[in-house]
Design a binder for these strands. Structure first.
Length: 511
RNA sequence: GAUUCCGUAGCUCAGCCGGUAGAGCAUUACACUUUUAAUGUAAGGGUCCCGGGUUCGAGCCCCGGCGGGAUCACCA
């Protein structure tokens, strides 16, 4: 894919040939046995010196300080880095000094992967280091690694900050920016923590279809594809809600799934075309129970990750300690616009939107208009976790009607740092009501709302067999991860965020 | 999709009023057997994102495109 090789790349290819010609395999097949990690050595050496002979470690050479007949270098393995000390007469005890003079001094570059054996010692200046007794090349690297140097005070020089470079070549980003690796390790810890919480409470993790013939469970534009053998259109899922509810019909009491969803919409620092939502559904519960459970779970996760419910996001301290504030969407709108919209109909709402400079076109029904008002005027004000509750029925086609207030549904969204991270409700289980809500969606679609829901007849059939009263929730895992790791862009919590393809000329693609 | 900023060596970045392309690190050579942003001396390295235009002359000005960031719109 590279048309013109740089000076440094040509040189590394030459070295590769010289290595081969000398009889050394630059890409050996046999395993290299490791018996320690750099972090293990650094943490335990001082306490337990006797056990740090005959050490075998492997990793990437990250810097070299040659000193003539000896050299210091830094080796990075999956756990961290350690300084290594290589003395010529130590690794080449006989007459033949080529292992040091050629392999080490001429051929090994920064970025190469090597296996080392030796013993641990502390240098004059007090740095725990590996005194190398044998050196084996495990992989010759052909591209120069952009090296980030850090001085004694921890300040980084030549740090690769170009987001395009970092996202397109995440493998390099991970090698050279240790913080990035930490973010992704934290993401996995977060998922594990959520799993533990749910499993300990008796939930069952399940898998449901990604390819769906009717994309349901959310209002969004789907990606379309085609199945050749069946000769039918299929959609990549926008949500797994309707499938999890079918499982509740089938007799499971608590199911959950980390669902990779796909939505064919705009991208920005909080939206990627594919993203992950945790959904779970619990029989015989309602949305109050779900609020209690959600705040308990998020508090537990934050403590698991940080030892405290407080996290620092963009200079703001956000506390996940339960309980969270609860406020109805009408009260929220009243609080931030001064307008009581609770009894308004569509036309009046549109006037309010126009007056407040909130976009309100003709395809928008009452529910969407209220959603617009909240999204544009209120949402950003909720920094600390806040449950917004009791939404109008028009914007919630899968939600059970409110037990005491007509026109509302039993739904909440959780807002943190001005962004929605969860959406939940007492699930609608009245099959006839569900059918008429779907039919309302069809009317919206006919008005031009390209995000209105399709009718899912099989789902209606399932509900007709009977679904127990159920509470359900969807939690945006990427956004939660942003909060838990302090990242402000979704691209920094996804290994490979969606990017435009890199431009390639005819020649470049051949290589 | 709209607005706006950006694209120069492997990396981070300078580049004046339009006048033959610069630094640090990295690389190469030599020296150096406990250094740590190692050091000293020397050297090499460029499709200035791409394509047009203006000009005697363009990294710089103008037009178009590609890619990225930010803001907005849509959305979670």
């Amino acid at each position: 894919m590279q048309h013109v090789l740089s000076e440094q790349e040509l040189l590394r290819r030459q070295k590769l040939e010289e290595i081969r010609n000398s009889g050394i395999d630059p890409y050996p097949a046999e395993e290299f046995l490791i018996n320690a990690s750099t972090v293990d050595i650094k943490q335990n050496y001082n306490r337990d010196k006797l056990n740090y002979k005959d050490i075998s470690i492997a990793g990437r050479i990250m810097s070299v300080r040659d000193m003539g007949k000896a050299a210091f270098a830094e080796l990075q393995d999956s756990s961290g880095r350690i300084q290594i000390y290589i003395k010529r007469d130590e690794i080449c005890p006989g007459e033949d000094k080529s292992l040091f003079d050629l392999l080490w001094k001429k051929w090994v570059d920064i970025g190469d992967i090597v296996g080392l054996t030796g013993y641990v010692f502390t240098t004059k200046v007090g740095e725990i280091s590996l005194h190398v007794q044998s050196l084996k090349l495990l992989c010759k690297s052909l591209k120069p690694l952009p090296i980030v140097k850090t001085d004694a005070s921890g300040e980084a020089y030549d740090e690769v900050t170009d987001p395009e470079f970092r996202y397109r070549q995440r493998y390099v980003d991970l090698v050279i920016n240790p913080r990035v690796k930490k973010t992704f390790e934290l993401r996995t810890q977060m998922m594990n923590s959520i799993r533990s919480f749910l499993n300990e409470h008796g939930a069952l993790e399940v898998d449901t279809p990604v390819l769906q013939s009717i994309p349901g469970g959310a209002s969004a534009r789907p990606f379309m594809t085609h199945h050749n053998a069946l000769n039918i259109p299929l959609y990549l899922r926008i949500a797994n809600e309707l499938y999890l509810k079918r499982l509740i019909v089938g007799g499971f009491d608590w199911v959950y799934e980390f669902s990779r969803n796909f939505r064919n919409e705009g991208m920005d620092r909080t939206h990627n075309p594919e993203f992950t939502i945790l959904e779970f559904y619990v029989a015989y519960r309602d949305y109050f129970w779900m609020m209690n459970t959600t705040e308990k779970m998020l508090e537990a996760v934050a403590i698991d990750l940080h030892g405290t419910p407080e996290v620092n996001v963009d200079g703001k301290i956000i506390s996940f300690a339960a309980p969270y504030k609860r406020i109805s969407i009408y009260d929220a709108i009243k609080e931030h616009t001064g307008v009581d919209v609770s009894s308004m109909q569509e036309e009046e709402l549109r006037l309010v939107c126009n007056k407040l400079n909130v976009q309100a076109d003709k395809t928008m029904g009452k529910g969407k208009l209220i959603d617009q008002l909240f999204g544009n005027k209120c949402e950003m004000h909720y920094t600390q976790p806040t449950f917004i509750i009791d939404y109008p029925v028009e914007m919630s086609p899968l939600t059970k009607k409110h037990r005491s207030v007509s026109g509302l549904v039993e739904r909440f969204e959780l807002i943190v740092n001005g962004k929605e991270i969860a959406n939940a409700y007492s699930e609608l289980n009245d099959p006839l009501d569900q059918r008429s809500r779907f039919e309302d969606q069809v009317k919206l679609m006919e008005r031009g709302d390209d995000e209105a829901m399709f009718i899912d007849h099989d789902f209606l059939r399932a509900l007709e067999y009977g679904m127990p009263p159920t509470a359900g929730i969807g939690i945006g895992i990427d956004r939660l991860c942003m909060l838990m790791t302090g990242e402000v862009s979704i691209q920094d919590v996804l290994f490979f965020p969606q990017m435009r393809p890199e431009h390639r000329t005819e020649n470049e693609t051949k290589e």
